[in-house]
Design a protein around this nucleic acid. Sequence first.
DNA 1: GTCTATACATAGATAGAC
DNA 2: GTCTATCTATGTATAGAC
Lengths: 231, 231
Amino acid sequence: MKLNFEKFKKDFSLSLEDISREYFIRNKDNMSIKKESTAIKNLATIIQTTLSISNDRGFQAMSLRDLSKESGLSLGALYSYFSSKEELFRIIHNIGMDTITNVLVQNIAHCNTLEEKLRHGIKIHLYLSELMGDWFYFLYMETKNLSKEERKLSLQAELYTENIFAEIIQEGIKKKIFQTKNALLISSAIKALLQDWYLKRWKYLSRKITVEEYAEFVIEFVEANLLKNKK
Amino acid sequence: MKLNFEKFKKDFSLSLEDISREYFIRNKDNMSIKKESTAIKNLATIIQTTLSISNDRGFQAMSLRDLSKESGLSLGALYSYFSSKEELFRIIHNIGMDTITNVLVQNIAHCNTLEEKLRHGIKIHLYLSELMGDWFYFLYMETKNLSKEERKLSLQAELYTENIFAEIIQEGIKKKIFQTKNALLISSAIKALLQDWYLKRWKYLSRKITVEEYAEFVIEFVEANLLKNKK
DNA sequence: GTCTATACATAGATAGAC
DNA sequence: GTCTATCTATGTATAGAC
């Protein structure tokens, strides 16, 4: 089960329309828009535009007039898709969280060896963030807009992914495959390196580093630590 | 020249008052406040409060009425320290950039060996971000508020620090002390790990990891790569 | 379902008394 | 130098025609 970005991309069927459709189906009872096709089309535009403006100037700095102009929908129309700017934020935030964790959980799955599991996890995370970069960036940068309670949930997501790696490493230590005193710190370092990829896209893009290359680098970088005295 | 946090902290004399004083002296001709002692005192409060609110809710989300309330100065008084909210941002941003780069440049200095240089650079960066965490966080998270032109300058600062490490590593490769094909990627990874320290303080704080421990970890982590087949 | 026009609240910024 | 009161612009949100 050799995994590369091209394959992942091809198999990754989730489009913005799919995400919008899923949301519409789940919530159509509470929505004033009834016609599925237009609802999905417009939801997709609204989300896309919001992500794009927010990632440029910030969600707070985006006025609904901006959103109206850039999405092509009027102010009035916008308000039939959400009841307040705050709700718009929550919708996007929740959809994003859910889809991302779902894809991760589904994909970071059964590999034969622990080494493979580790590599696989790193690649999946990077590949996904490559395809859903604007979501990742949005979720990272706009946590401020959440309430204290909601923030906690958001932080748990951070810990969740970190923990996936921590468990792999812990198990590897038990089985004497990996060697380190800092399983948790290494997991948190992995997380930081994975995040750097989507937080600094401008940098890696301008240096023409592909996601494959970066993945290889991270894997090597981490393994050099876990397999230290073993080679 | 053994470097540890306690020593660095003790030697690090730069207080918020000092920073405010420096700014006042440089700009007093353009300022309506003339009395040095009050100017400095109030500047310090304004900056501190702005950093604190911004790092919690975001600069955009902070209204000047918020700032007025939490700083204890009236709206009118605030406007004798800056002429617009945008200027307030630029002042803090510029002061922050300048002081941080200055301290870094002054401190990341002459060590005997390249290995020491590398370790020293990592420690200084972490120690400084420990003492000026709110500035670092602010500068990282609020770049959005800058114009396109100013953003470029800000990105150069990122590259600047990265480059310090890149040069050390490059030289180390030449002298066959370090071994890697990815000098630049490793530098960028170092940067990411250093940033993680102040971007996720809540995490490291709750795990009771000290800055010393984290520094040691980063150094080990990086050296495991650079000294790979050497041990 | 979508538009335009408009109500209402809050933001940034200034004037003038103390 | 600092305050309160106020102006003006802009933002969110709604009403009602089409």
